[in-house]
Design a protein around this nucleic acid. Structure first.
Length: 99
DNA sequence: AGTCGAGCGCGCA
DNA sequence: TGCGCGCTCGACT
């Protein structure tokens, strides 16, 4: 569970209005298991303290949320935080990227 | 551009 | 032990 814990720990630190990618997280953990990052977030039981909606794909696609791909809920949440989203893709991704 | 297959770490059967 | 997953990237079409 170390892996998952680390992932959750990092995601938890993402400030409001900012996002990061699965890839960056994996890199931070010194691994190439990008999928494992998604898995960890998917299995996370505390969406309250773990804003998994702030984690997106490297190309800006929102990915998924709560086990559902392209979750409209996730998109709306991000938009609410001031992030522009066009057709399930984040615009100016670089502008919101952290880490 | 769009699609396919291969690699990673963890969880579940 | 084996397979799949909220992913990514290099190769092919």
């Amino acid at each position: 569970m170390d892996f998952s814990e680390k992932v959750l720990g990092l995601v938890k630190k993402i400030p409001k209005g900012k996002v990061t990618t699965y890839k960056k997280i994996a890199k931070k953990l010194n691994t190439n298991a990008y999928r494992a990052v998604g898995s960890a977030l998917r299995c996370n039981d505390k969406p309250i303290i773990i804003p998994c909606h702030r984690v997106v794909n490297s190309d800006g696609a929102v990915g998924g949320y709560k086990g559902v791909k392209n979750s409209k809920e996730k998109i709306r949440l991000l938009k609410k935080e001031g992030i522009k989203i066009k057709s399930s893709k984040i615009e100016n991704l670089k502008n919101h990227l952290v880490m």
